[in-house]
Amino acid sequence: MTNVMTDWDLAAITALLPIAAVMTILQKNPYHALVVRGILGAIAALVYALLGAADVALTEALVGTMLAITLYAVAVRSSLVLKLGIIAPVNLPEIELDNGASNGQQDAQQNSNPEDLVHPVSKSLEEIFNLIHSFEDPQELKPLLEDLRVFCDRHSLRLELHPVPDRQALDHAMETKEVHGVALVNGDSSAHPYSVTVRVERLYELMQTELNPAISTLSTTTIKPPPAEKPLVSDASSR
């Protein structure tokens, strides 16, 4: 090895590895940390190859750089989200199901072509998907949502709105833990135009200091766990 490169070269290239590691640690945004983790993986592969471990370098490049950061990007994207339930009218389009429930099972049995059966359902799913993506912020909630978006950007969260038709559905979404919090428009008599309720303790702590108190009142709630089901196995062991 020494006839190819000096020890100083070797030391200088190896010193890149702790530098990249410290850079990864110092990142605040999880997505930025993932990209810098990719840089760390590339440098690690270089160092391993330099020290003669070609198999380790290949594994680092394949698993450490490619698989790990892709999986982590998907995991971070799906977990760092704040689901907020709001009351908003959802105008579902009239979806016609040609071979659907109205004609019963007889039509479905007579119709032997499977494509005719699948087509209207998939078409309606596509329409619902487009509808969800074209959903815009309701006018009456604009100031609150702007405040929340600033909050979410600061903590690299993604704000996801769950529009439901009425108050009952909102409470149900909260009980079944479909949403992390709900936002309501207060009446004109109230001092604050909006009230926000979150069920996650940590979110409540963060929002308490960072949301604009002039816009909304904040409260937290705990969801009672569902009653424990009877154990399937009878207590034979206690006898």
Binding site: V35, G38, A49, A54, A57, L58, A61, T65, T70
Partner: peptide, 20 residues
């Protein structure tokens, strides 16, 4: 042997970049 690893890392690095 290191040369083959270099070629593989060259191609895989770009693939991971595309996925990310």
């Amino acid at each position: 042997m290191i040369g083959v690893v270099g070629v593989l890392v060259l191609s895989v690095g770009n693939a991971s970049l595309m996925l990310l």
